[in-house]
Design a protein around this nucleic acid. Structure first.
Length: 570
RNA sequence: UGGGGAGUAGCCAAGUGGUAAGGCAGCGGACUUUGGAUCCGCCAUGCGCAGGUUCGAAUCCUGCCUCCCCAGCCA
């Protein structure tokens, strides 16, 4: 809209949150002209797993920064280890980045640079700054020293340039077995920074690569590939997580030796969430050991899992923004994420009537064959979403939880002799409770007040509760999957003596069948999100078929009554 | 006990010498045809600890404590 742009700009004047330390660094660069005012970032995932909400933070940071500074962002796959990487992951990562709402400037692969990296390695060898080492992996470890003791030089460290050149070429030609030798940078085996103790640049891997096939049998390590890849792409700000902080001197060293464009690496603390795990290793175990049903199981913190669960991209972006950027390790309360999810869904989700655990209600004074329709707002938060028709008749379903034979204080819902409102319909009063032989309540006999049509009493009398309901003869049935936290404790990884799987929540999934839905949902399509009034937000699962709808609970509505019960109950 | 980081409320997080923002959670209340949403109020005499400098310190100095990362031919 034409009026929107100026408004947004004006709002930003006053509402712009304080800049984080990364943006301040960029401002400083722009002041001093370090990169000529350019801002070029990149998101560099390794395609060895699915993206999760932790990656989303990095994606958000890189793309939103570039956007704010009029810059660009590349998507680059760090595909330097063909033993772990697969095309499946390359595809899913692209899908997820797009779904989050971002489009990259260029799609690149570290493997695009294998030739250049090889040439640069040769250059370092010529300069006497790299050498082929025939120490075994174990020996290299021994020679590296420890945290408190310096390492010692490899006996192969002083081979001549000619010999190194010859050996390295033969490495490339495949004349050596895996592990027989490596190419190492010649830096300082006594450096207090272990990353500088002659790090490995190339290792032999007789494995074909998803992109380069069998062209190579030597592959650059991440340390050798990453900085130069950024440099080649003209990246100005190379944003990464904290654990790479002490690799920065190494990347700087490589780039300085090569004399090429020098990006600024900036490290920030990755996002962690309570009641979940966010490491690839653990996520892979959850999938491979069958604790969840795949990478996109709605209980997974993966982007694909969250998507299937019904979470919106905006909710994820909001969380990233809300939690801020800093350098201190932290664990964000999952409730902050739930808040973001509810906040977005409240504004965009159409409302629907859905009775998850049905209790039959017969309106005894409502004519047997009568049916009428009520027109109700699709979304009270967004009148432009229009209205829908709800059919009403003599026999209805309400939620089992919405009736108590012997209600405790503060329980406002239906009880014997009590009057409540059926949302958008009538006041009803419970006259009789029907039980089976076991004493279970199986049906309620109620009367309605025709004068309260639409939900208001002309005499001004009030009710304390409004219930959702579905007409029996008009209802459609569905399966509803209720998800809860995957783990029972805030940090399943905090106890070093226990496997995180010991803290799996056995009740993380509850499947309900025979749920009764308003008929307007009959044509709901996978991915669509709804608010089931008074219950929560639900998304149509791809498992749905023409005859059978399946819904995933994204998140519950905030629930004052449940909170009260918890306080008094346990 | 080598090197690199970080400590501000239950959880995130501003603060850059002038007297502790904001959000989530929590607790009160208003309103409500979703116990939803919305609105109002409360919630750090205190910034890891101890000293010091200063008229004045979360911010500067000194010492200490705690936590995280690094000893892959993983990224």
């Amino acid at each position: 809209m034409a009026t929107e742009a100026p408004n947004t700009a004006a709002e930003n004047e006053s509402n712009t949150p304080r800049k984080d330390f990364i943006r301040e660094i960029i401002d400083e660069h722009n002041r001093t002209g370090r990169f000529g005012g350019r801002v070029y970032t990149r998101f560099p995932p390794e395609p060895n797993g699915y993206l999760h909400i932790g990656h989303a933070k990095s994606i958000w940071l890189n793309f939103s920064i570039a956007d704010e500074y009029g810059g660009k962002t590349n998507l680059r796959f760090d595909d330097t280890n063909p033993t772990k990487e697969e095309q499946e992951y390359i595809d899913s990562i692209q899908e997820d980045v797009r779904w989050l709402g971002y489009e990259w400037e260029e799609l690149r692969y570290a493997s695009d640079y294998f030739d250049q990296l090889y040439e640069w390695a040769v250059q370092l060898i010529r300069d006497g700054k790299a050498y082929v080492d025939h120490l075994s992996a174990d020996e290299i470890r021994e020679y590296r020293g420890t945290l408190t003791e310096p390492g010692k030089n490899s006996p192969y460290r002083d081979r001549s340039v000619e010999e190194n050149l010859d050996l390295f070429e033969r490495m490339r030609k495949g004349e050596f077995a895996e592990g027989e030798c490596v190419l190492r940078a010649k830096i300082d085996m006594a450096s207090p920074n272990i990353n500088l103790r002659d790090p490995v640049m190339y290792r032999i891997l007789h494995t074909s690569h998803p992109r380069t096939g069998d062209e190579w049998c030597i592959y650059p390590t991440y340390d050798w590939a990453h900085g130069q890849s950024d440099s080649i792409e003209g990246i100005t700000h190379s944003i990464c997580t904290l654990e790479f902080e002490d690799h920065r001197p190494l990347y700087d060293w490589f780039i300085d030796q090569l004399g090429i464009h020098h990006p600024q690496q900036i490290e920030f603390a990755r996002l962690n969430l309570s009641y979940t795990v966010l490491s690839k290793r653990r996520l892979i175990r959850l999938v491979q050991e069958g604790h969840v049903n795949g990478w996109d199981d709605p209980r997974m913190p993966t982007i694909s899992g969250l998507r299937r669960r019904g979470v919106t991209p905006k909710a994820i972006r909001d969380l990233c923004e809300m939690t801020g950027v800093s350098k201190s390790n932290s664990v964000v309360d999952i409730q902050m994420f739930e808040y973001c999810v509810r906040q977005d869904l409240n504004k965009v989700a159409p409302r629907a009537m859905a009775v998850l655990r049905p209790l039959r209600v017969v309106i005894t004074n409502y004519p047997e064959d009568q049916t009428e329709e009520f027109e109700v707002l699709v979304n009270p938060e967004d009148p432009s979403a229009g209205t829908r028709l709800l059919p009403f008749s003599r026999v209805l379903y309400i939620e089992q939880d919405d009736f108590m034979e012997d209600p405790p204080p503060k329980y406002y819902r239906l009880a014997p002799g009590r009057e409540v409102r059926l949302r958008a319909a009538y006041f009803i009063k419970c006259e009789e409770v029907i039980k089976d032989e076991a004493g279970n309540v199986v049906e309620l006999r109620c009367t309605y007040d025709p004068a309260t049509r639409g939900g208001d009493a002309p005499d001004g009398r009030k009710v304390k509760a409004t219930l959702h309901w579905v007409s029996e003869q008009h209802a459609i049935e569905a399966e509803v999957r209720l998800y809860d936290r995957l783990f029972t404790v805030e940090d399943p990884t905090s106890d070093p003596d226990k496997d995180f799987l010991e803290f799996l929540n056995p009740k993380s999934l509850e499947v309900l069948t025979g749920c009764k839905l308003e008929r307007n949902l009959a044509n709901a399509k996978p991915g669509e999100r709804y608010q089931f009034e008074r219950i929560g937000y639900f998304a149509v699962d791809p498992d749905s078929t023409d005859g059978k709808l399946v819904f995933n609970r994204t998140v519950t509505l905030r629930d004052e009554w449940a909170k009260l019960q918890q306080k008094s109950g346990r």
